[in-house]
């Protein structure tokens, strides 16, 4: 509080670096978490008994496991089995596994809400099952699961801060280090709070634009 001007001058570059790491964590995890969710949902819905069970087990495990514990296992635990990842990679893997598990639940719900008659009709036109899933079922299932997927994306933005617990200096971590050094906890954490708020708001706007762009009459307002 003594020399606020000076504080911000060194605070902002420190946070900026952290913010880039936060962006990187989110931008790498989100697309793969999305694809993972599709894969698990498809496996669960269309896979044979074994695949379906495995996917169900996957979801149960990763929904049940606290994310922080998962990150600890990947970063601190796996090396004792000879599997070593950098902190950043560990965080991304954890996020993809967790995000995918939740995404798959929404996507599976979306798949189930597409009337089974449409699959029948697609097959009757000579489409293979894979073709029908790709061009008939998934486009509808993803539209229907978009609200849920958006929520998960927002969660991902926020829980990306857990990466700090396995030494990834993302924005929360950068802020914490700085705050401890200069005893400026209030300013720093308020600023970071505003950063997340801004991020979530922008994400919300982007999602709204996407929803509007892919909206289809009869698909029920989101």
């Amino acid at each position: 509080m003594i020399d606020l001007q000076f504080d911000f001058e060194i605070l902002l570059p420190a946070l900026y670096k952290g913010a880039l790491v936060t962006f990187a964590l989110i931008l790498v995890s989100a697309p793969f978490g999305f694809l993972n969710g599709i894969g698990i949902a498809l496996g669960r819905t269309y896979g044979n008994r074994l695949v379906s069970r495995l996917c169900q087990g996957y979801v149960l495990f990763f929904k049940g496991c606290p994310l922080l514990l998962l990150l600890f296992i990947i970063y601190f635990g796996l090396p004792s089995l000879g599997i070593t990842f950098t902190a950043f990679t560990s965080a991304v893997i954890g996020f993809i596994l967790c995000n995918g598990a939740y995404n798959s639940e929404y996507i599976r719900g979306g798949i189930q809400s597409v009337s089974s008659g449409q699959m029948t009709a697609a097959l009757s036109l000579g489409m293979s099952r894979v073709q029908a899933i790709r061009s008939i079922i998934l486009p509808q299932a993803l539209r229907k699961s978009l609200p849920g997927l958006s929520n998960e994306f927002i969660y991902l933005i926020k829980y990306s801060s857990l990466a700090y617990m396995i030494t990834v200096i993302e924005i929360t971590g950068a802020g914490n280090i700085f705050a401890a050094k200069y005893f400026a906890f209030f300013e720093v954490f308020i600023l970071i709070g505003i950063f997340y708020l801004g991020l979530v708001t922008v994400a919300g706007r982007i999602i709204a634009v996407i929803e509007k762009k892919i909206a289809i009459p009869g698909f029920g307002g989101v």
Binding site: S115, G117, A121, L123, S124, G126, Q140
Partner: peptide, 27 residues
């Protein structure tokens, strides 16, 4: 062979995410 055997259903089973013309085009 299924292409050669068309089918029309009681509940239409149209592809809900596609326009009329796209419903016909897709296959």
């Amino acid at each position: 062979l299924r292409q050669k055997i068309g089918m029309v259903f009681q509940n239409f089973n149209l592809f809900d995410h596609l326009t009329a013309v796209a419903n016909v085009e897709i296959a």
